[in-house]
C-alpha cells in the first residue's frame, strides 16, 4: 500500500525534479513519448530475433534429430556460440559481417545468433521427446514424413520448444538493455541517462523506470508465450481420467 501510495503521490506532485526512486512514474509521464518509443524498440528487438531464430532452428533441429550424427557437432557449436558474452558479440558482429560499427542491425543479428544457439538444441530435444510409439502409430496410419512432422511431432514437442522460447525471450530483454549502454536506442538508454544525471547526487527515476519497464516487458512476453502454449496444447489441460 505504501509503495502504491508513494508512486501516485509523487506522480501527482508537481515537483517533477524529485530524485526519489518512487518518482519513476512521474518521470515516465514527463518523458512519455520518448520512453514509449524506447519500449517499442525494446519489444521488437526482444521478440523478432527469437522468431527468426526459431525459424532457423526448426530445420536445423529437425536435421540433427533426423540424422543422429549431426546432433553432437550441432549442440557443441551452438553451445560454443552461447558462451560468447552478449556485449562481445554486439561489437563483433559488424566487422565479421562487413557492417559499419553501430549499425542498427548488429543487435538483432547478435540476438538472433543467441536464439538459434539456444533453440536448435531445444527443437532437437523437443522432437526427441515425442514418444517413439506415437511416431510409429502416425507412420502406421499412413502419414508421410512431412505430414507426420507437422501434424504429430511438432505439436507434441510444443511444450519443450515453448520452454526454450521463454528462456530466449526473457534473456533477450536483458541483453537488449545491455546494447543500450553502447548507444543503441532502447530502454537501456534510461540507465545511461540515470547514470549521467547521478553526478554528484543519485537521480533514481530513469533507472528505476528502466528496471520496471524491462521486468514488465519480460513478464508480459513470458505470459504471452505461456498463453499461446496453452492454446496450442489443449490436451495438456485435460483432466486425467480416474
Amino acid at each position: 500500500m505504501s509503495l502504491l501510495h508513494a508512486v501516485f503521490a509523487t506522480a501527482d506532485s508537481p515537483s517533477s525534479a524529485s530524485s526519489s526512486p518512487w518518482h519513476f512514474f512521474g518521470y515516465f509521464l514527463d518523458h512519455r513519448s520518448q520512453d514509449l518509443s524506447w519500449l517499442w524498440t525494446h519489444t521488437w528487438l526482444s521478440v523478432v530475433p527469437v522468431i527468426v531464430g526459431l525459424l532457423i532452428a526448426l530445420p536445423l533441429g529437425w536435421l540433427s534429430r533426423r540424422y543422429g550424427w549431426l546432433y553432437p557437432p550441432m549442440v557443441s557449436i551452438t553451445g560454443l556460440l552461447y558462451t560468447i558474452p552478449s556485449i562481445a558479440l554486439f561489437v563483433l558482429v559488424p566487422p565479421l559481417l562487413g557492417l559499419s560499427s553501430l549499425d542498427p542491425l548488429q543487435v538483432p543479428i547478435a540476438l538472433t545468433v543467441y536464439s538459434v544457439a539456444l533453440l536448435v538444441r531445444v527443437v532437437a530435444d523437443g522432437l526427441a521427446s515425442v514418444p517413439e510409439e506415437v511416431n510409429q502409430a502416425a507412420t502406421a496410419i499412413g502419414y508421410g514424413r512431412a505430414r507426420r512432422l507437422f501434424a504429430v511431432e511438432l505439436p507434441v514437442a510444443v511444450p519443450v520448444i515453448a520452454a526454450g522460447l521463454r528462456v530466449a525471450t526473457v534473456s533477450n530483454v536483458s541483453m537488449v538493455a545491455i546494447a543500450g549502454t553502447i548507444g543503441m536506442s532502447n530502454l537501456g538508454q534510461l540507465f545511461q541517462i540515470g547514470k549521467d544525471l547521478s553526478t554528484p547526487t543519485a537521480y533514481y527515476p530513469p533507472i528505476v523506470l528502466g528496471i520496471v519497464l524491462c521486468v514488465l516487458l519480460a513478464l508480459v512476453l513470458d505470459a504471452l508465450i505461456i498463453l499461446a502454449t496453452r492454446l496450442m496444447t489443449p490436451w495438456r489441460r485435460a483432466v486425467p481420467a480416474k
Binding site: V170, S171, V173, S174, A177, L187, F191, G210, I211, L219
Partner: peptide, 8 residues
C-alpha cells in the same frame, strides 16, 4: 533472472 543486469 528477469531483472535487467545493467539496470541493476
Amino acid at each position: 533472472r528477469s531483472l535487467p543486469s545493467v539496470g541493476l
